[in-house]
């Protein structure tokens, strides 16, 4: 039986620009969020994540307008993340055209927020987002776009997020983000084995082979890519062809 796999574009946004850094730092402008998203939609991307890279830091979210415009042209699932703190923020996100809301910092600060949010809007709309960094033999969850450590074990936190009501997890390896060195397979393996909700893996994709290694060795449901599309290293068509050739069930 072929395993389902989604190819997801991750668009990190700062002040209305698509930005890309390395290990969530040294952010560089690489394009316009709406034009970038439209291009990926036309080329057949399965889903798009818009993440406000600095929202938690400044306690604001610039993405509502971007999502509102995106939803006029793009008809695949859209996720918003970064700086979502209240039920009003979620309501505003859904009204703007987002389907799913990724929550990291506020979940750590107030875990009940995940339960409340999934009760009101359904767990299918709530993605528990974890930014993890390796410390010795374990991984620690970070907040504020990888700037603040929390002392919380990322694997335990993943289980907790499922228990609290998240319908899906977005796991970002801070160590691998923007490095093009491949996903943190060990981290994804441990987390996907610990939960029974879908897991989206993010951070490190440098070539289609990285997606194949990750998806063969773990039970990831979706793979997020940033740099390799932003820098035109590979096209969506090329990446999907590789996935299909390796026997994954992928939307053509």
């Amino acid at each position: 039986m072929k395993k389902n796999l989604r190819l997801i574009s991750r668009i990190d946004v700062k002040n209305n620009f698509v930005i890309k850094g390395i290990q969530l730092e040294g952010l560089r402008k690489v394009g316009d969020p709406l034009l970038t998203a439209k291009k990926y939609y036309e080329e057949g991307i399965d889903e798009i994540l818009f993440i406000d890279a600095v929202a938690s830091l400044y306690e604001r979210n610039n993405l509502f307008k971007i999502i509102e415009n995106a939803s006029k042209h793009i008809f695949v699932p859209l996720t918003i993340g970064g700086g979502i703190r209240t039920l009003d923020d979620i309501e505003h996100s859904l009204d703007s055209g987002a389907d799913k809301i990724a929550i990291n910092t506020q979940a750590i600060k107030n875990p009940d927020f995940i339960t409340e949010a999934s009760r009101v809007y359904g767990s299918q709309a709530i993605i528990g987002s974890i930014e993890a960094k390796k410390r010795g033999n374990s991984w620690e969850a970070y907040i504020d776009s990888g700037r603040e450590e929390t002392g919380i074990d990322a694997i335990n936190w993943a289980k907790k997020l499922e228990f609290l009501g998240a319908g899906e997890l977005l796991i970002t390896s801070i160590d691998r983000d923007g490095t093009k060195k491949g996903y943190d397979i060990e981290l994804i393996q441990l987390i996907s084995n610990s939960v029974s909700i879908p897991v989206i893996s993010s951070g490190g994709a440098g070539c289609p082979e990285d997606i194949i290694s990750l998806s063969s060795e773990t039970d990831t449901s979706g793979v997020a890519v940033g740099s390799i599309l932003h820098y035109d290293d590979y096209s969506i068509r090329q990446i999907k062809a590789k996935m299909i050739n390796n026997n994954f069930n992928v939307r053509k």
Partner: peptide, 12 residues
């Protein structure tokens, strides 16, 4: 086996 739920994704 145990399956992952919700079913989120593209199916034929």
């Amino acid at each position: 086996k145990k399956i992952r739920l919700p079913n989120i994704g593209w199916n034929k």
